[in-house]
Amino acid sequence: MLEIRNLHASVGGKEILRGIDLKVNAGEVHAIMGPNGSGKSTLALVLAGRETYMVTAGEVIYEGKNLLKMAPEDRAREGIFMAFQYPVEIPGLNSMTFLKAALNSIRKHRGLEELDAMDFLDLAREKMKLVDMGEDLMKRPVNEGFSGGEKKRNEILQMAVLEPKLAILDETDSGLDIDALKVVANGVNALRSEDRGMILVTHYQRLLNYIVPDYVHVLFNGAIVKSGGKELALELEAKGYAWIEEEVREACRVDLQEGGHAA
C-alpha cells in the first residue's frame, strides 16, 4: 500500500533524510527504531505532508498515487493518520467539535453519510472507553493543559475514531507508564487488520511486547541501515545502537576502498 523510494528530505538547507527505501503492505506492522535525531519524526512528518520539510529526491507511492503531490488533508481523507510525537495544543477549540468535523470530512470523502451530533457522541464514547479516556477530557479544548500521557491517548482516540488505512505512530509510547502503554497497544491492536498497514516509530523495545511487528528497521543518520524481524528489536535493546554505528562505518570503509560513494 505504501512504497517509499530513495526519499531525500531537508529542512533549512540541511539534509535529514538521505535515501529511504521502505515498502509497507496491507496487514503489515513495521517498527522503525533509531537514535535521537536520526530522522524518524522527519520521515513521519514528510509522509503526513508537513511542508516545512523539503523533499529533494525520491518518491512515495500510496495506493498507486503520488503521495508527495497530495495536500495533508487529502492524505488524511485517503486514510493516512499520523500520531504526533508532540501533539500541539489548540486553546479554545473544543475537542469534540474538532473531532466531529474531522470525521465528517473524511466520511464525506469516502461517500459515507455525515454523523449528526448524537451519533457522533455515541461513537466517541465507545472509542473513549477503548483508550480509557475520561469524557471530561474531551469537553476541554484540544490538548490544552493535557499531560504528556493524555495527549498520547488523545492521538490514539483520534486514530480509533478516524479508522485510517495507514497509521504512523511517532513515539506514541514514549513517556507512558505501563498502564497507559497497554491502553495505547490495545488501541493499535484493535485497529490491526488485513487491509491496514502500520508504522510504529519507537525508541523502546517495550512497546513491541504488546504490538508484535512483522518487520523492524533501524534508521540511522537519515537512512535505513538495517532491517529484520522482531528479534532485531531485542538485539537493539540488548546492545544499543553503537554496534550498528560500527557496522555502518565498516560498510562505508569497504565502499570507499572499492571506489564507490559513501552515503
Binding site: 505532508g49 500541539v88 474538532f98 474531522a102 473524511i106 483520534q158
Partner: peptide
C-alpha cells in the same frame, strides 16, 4: 500558527476550514 494549522489539516480538514476554525477560536 502553522503547527496548529497542520495538525487540523492532518486530520482531514481543508486548509480554509482549518484556518476558519482557528480564526473563530481567536
Amino acid at each position: 500558527e502553522e503547527e496548529q494549522l497542520f495538525y487540523l489539516r492532518s486530520r482531514g480538514l481543508d486548509r480554509e476550514i482549518a484556518q476558519g476554525l482557528l480564526t473563530q477560536v481567536f
